[in-house]
Design a protein around this nucleic acid. Structure first.
Lengths: 362, 362
DNA sequence: TGCTTTTGCACAATCGATGTTGCAAAGCAT
DNA sequence: ATGCTTTGCAACATCGATTGTGCAAAAGCA
C-alpha cells in the first residue's frame, strides 16, 4: 500500500525562515552542520537535530534546551542539508510534475502546482515529456533515484504503465487531465463541458443555408482514442442528438491534436462543403490555432456564417473578428484536488471537475 | 571563484540506461545498493562504486572486473541513489530555473531549459517567483540547501542581490532576459529589436490625420526602470528621431506590465486623442492582451487608422482583424547561450541576442 | 533514607555512495 | 633468489542528518 507523504513537513524550515538579514550570508564560511551548532550550544548533535526538526518533545528534550539551540541555529544562519536528511529518511522533499509540453493549459497547471508545492515547503520538479512514452519511463526512473516523494502526471500518454512503474518503486502518484485506471485521477468533466459548449454553439448558429451538410455542427481535432477526446465526442453527440436525432460519423474529425493537421482539416472541410459549416466545435487550443490559420484568410462575411466553440480557453479568442465560445478548464481545482487525493487516498478513483463556459458576446 | 559544474556527468546513468525491459521492475524488492552488487560480484563496495561511476581506470580496477560488475549491475537493474551521491560529492545534479510566472515567453524558456538540462543528464527544477524579491531570496536559500548545482534566473527583479547570495553560497548562476552587473547574463537585444519594430510600424502607418498628436507613434507598457524596457525605449526613440527629429515624453507610457493597466492606458489615450494614434508600440504580450481588451471594442474602420507592433510573439496576434507586427525573442538561443556561459565562464559578461521581426501581412 | 519512575540527554548506528590509504600478489630487473 | 615497482583490490573514514538505546541525575513516593 502506498503511503501519503505530502502531509509531512519538517518544521525547521519554518522555524528558521525569518532570519535577520545581518550575519546570514556573511562570507564563504563553510555551511554549518548540526555538529557545529551542537558544539556552540554545548549539546550533542542528536539533541540539536531533535530541537530543530521539532521532534524534541517526543525525544524528551527540555523546552529550555530546545529553545536555546533554536536560537543559536538562527543566529548562525543554520539551514539543514536536504541530501543528508533525504538519505536518512528516504524522503527527498521533491515532488514532480510531468507535462507533455508547455502550452497555455499545461503552463497554468505548472504554475498552480509550483505554488502548492512550495506552500508545503517542498521543492517542485517540473519536466516535459514531449509526449514520448519512452521518455516518460526514463524520467520516472530518474526521479525514483532521487527518492522523489510523489509524482503528478499530466496528460500522460501511457498512464497504466507509469502507474505500475511507480507502484514498483513505491512512489505515490496521481493523474491529472488524462485518467489512469490504476491510480487516483482528476480530470475535467469533458462530457459535461462538451455538452455545454455544443448547446451554446447550437444556440448561436446563424440562419440555415438549406444545404444539409453545411447546416450541421462539426467536431474538429483531438484523438478519439484518448479518453478526454472520447468523452468530449460523447457530450457533443448528446447535444446534437437532442436536436437532430442523430450524429453522422463524418461530423467528427478527431485524429490528432497537431496544428498543421487542423489547418488542413478545416481547409478540406471548407472545400467539401463549399463554405464554412454552420457550427464548429474546436477541440483544444492547438487545434484552434491551427484552424485559425485557415479561417483568418476568409473574407469577413463568411465568418458570420458559422458559430465557433473551442474546448480550451485562449484570451485572444475573445478578440477575434467573430465570436468564439470557449470552455475553460479549472486548472487550479484540478491540481488542488490532485493534491488532496495524494494526501488522503491511494485507491484508483476518478474525480471529474466541471469546467466553465465562456459565452462570447455576439 | 565559482566553478563550472555543468560539464560533469556521472557515466553510470548512461551505462545502465538501456536496460532490457525484463527483470527490471520485477517487484517490491528493496532497491539494490552497491553493497548488494558487491556481494553478488564478490567484490567490495568501493570497487563496485568505481566500476559504475567510471573512475575504475583511475582507481586501478582491472577492466575485466569492471565489466563483470557493470554486467551484474545491469542485470539487477541497479540505479544509484542520488541523495547519497549528492551528500558525498556535494553536487546534487539539480539545476534550477527561476521564472516570474508562466506566460508564453517564460514557458518557452522553461521548455528549452528542461530539454537542455535533461540532455545533460541532470534534473531540472523550475520555480516561479511571482516577481517577489523576498520569494526569490527564499527560493535561492532553499535551493542552496538542496546543494543545487546551478541556477538560471529569468526576468529576475533583484539580480544583484541574488547574485551576491549565490556567490556566498558558491552556486554558479546566470541571468537570462534581465541582466545582472555581477554575473554572466544573456538578454535579447532589446534596443535593436525595438528599432526594427518601430521602423516597421513607421513604414506601415496609414495616411496622416493632420492632428500632430494623433500622427505620432506611442510606446505602451513595461517598466522604464527595468533595463529591458529602458533599452526598448532607446530603440524606439532612435527610430522615431530618425524620422521626426525628436520624441516627446508623453509618447512613452511605460509604468507597468500589468494587463488591466494597459487596458486603462490605451482607453485613456484614445480618449485624449479622440481616436487611435497612427502607430502603437506594444511592449510585451501581457500589455498586448490588456490593450486588446479595449481595442477589440472599436469599430472595424477605426482599427485601420493605426499601425500596431508588439514586442513579443503571440500566434493569435496574426489572426486579429488588423495587422500586428511582432518581435520574437529567440528563447532557444537565450537558454543555450546561458548554458554556455555557465559552462565556460564566470565573469560578468553581457551577451545580447538579436530577436526576429515578424512582419504582418497587410 | 531507599527505591522506583521519570526526565534529559549523549552515544553510536545508519542511510548509500565516494575516495583515501594500505596491503598482498604479480611483474620485473639484477 | 632478492629487492623494487606496479597492479588490483579491500578496508575504512566520510558527507550531515535521523533515530534506537542506554545511562545518569532528578523527581516522586514509601
Amino acid at each position: 500500500m502506498l503511503q501519503s507523504i505530502m502531509a509531512f513537513v519538517h518544521p525547521v524550515n519554518h522555524i528558521l525562515k525569518n532570519v535577520p538579514e545581518g550575519p546570514l550570508f556573511m562570507s564563504n564560511k563553510q555551511k554549518e552542520t548540526i555538529y557545529d551548532i551542537a558544539q556552540k550550544a554545548g549539546a550533542s548533535a542528536s539533541t540539536v537535530s531533535a530541537a530543530l526538526n521539532g521532534t524534541w518533545k517526543k525525544r524528551r528534550i527540555s523546552e529550555k534546551t530546545a529553545q536555546r539551540i533554536i536560537q543559536i541555529a538562527r543566529e548562525q544562519g543554520y539551514t539543514t542539508n536536504n541530501q543528508a536528511r533525504a538519505l536518512r529518511t528516504s524522503r527527498s522533499g521533491l515532488v514532480a510534475l510531468l507535462v507533455p509540453e508547455y502550452n497555455r493549459f499545461f503552463s497554468n497547471i505548472a504554475q498552480t502546482f509550483s505554488q502548492e508545492v512550495r506552500a508545503r515547503n517542498l521543492c517542485p520538479v517540473i519536466i516535459s515529456t514531449e509526449r514520448d512514452p519512452k521518455e516518460e519511463r526514463h524520467i520516472v526512473e530518474d526521479l525514483s533515484n532521487w527518492q522523489i516523494d510523489s509524482i503528478f502526471f499530466v496528460g500522460s500518454v501511457s498512464p497504466e504503465d507509469l502507474s505500475r512503474q511507480c507502484k514498483d518503486a513505491q512512489i505515490p502518484h496521481v493523474f491529472v487531465d488524462q485518467p489512469c485506471a490504476l491510480a487516483p485521477s482528476v480530470v475535467t468533466d469533458n462530457r459535461a463541458g462538451a455538452l455545454m459548449l455544443t448547446q451554446q454553439i447550437l444556440a448561436s448558429m446563424p440562419a440555415a443555408t438549406g444545404d444539409p451538410l453545411r447546416d450541421r455542427v462539426y467536431f474538429l481535432g483531438g484523438d478519439r482514442r484518448l479518453p478526454s477526446t472520447y468523452n468530449r465526442i460523447e457530450g457533443f453527440s448528446e447535444a446534437i442528438r437532442a436536436v437532430t436525432g442523430s450524429v453522422a460519423p463524418d461530423q467528427i474529425i478527431a485524429k490528432t491534436y497537431a496544428k498543421d493537421a487542423a489547418t488542413q482539416a478545416i481547409a478540406d472541410l471548407y472545400g467539401q462543403l463549399g463554405g464554412l459549416p454552420r457550427g464548429l466545435f474546436i477541440n483544444s487550443d492547438s487545434v484552434f490555432e491551427g484552424a485559425m490559420h485557415f479561417i483568418a484568410t476568409l473574407p469577413e462575411d463568411e465568418l458570420q456564417t458559422c458559430a465557433f466553440g473551442c474546448f480550451d480557453y485562449e484570451p485572444f479568442g475573445q478578440l477575434l473578428r467573430f465570436p468564439v465560445h470557449m470552455i475553460r478548464q479549472r486548472h487550479k481545482k484540478l491540481v488542488q484536488r490532485a493534491f488532496w487525493h495524494l494526501e488522503h487516498t491511494t485507491t484508483p478513483v476518478l474525480e471529474q471537475i466541471e469546467p466553465e463556459l465562456y459565452r462570447a458576446k455576439t
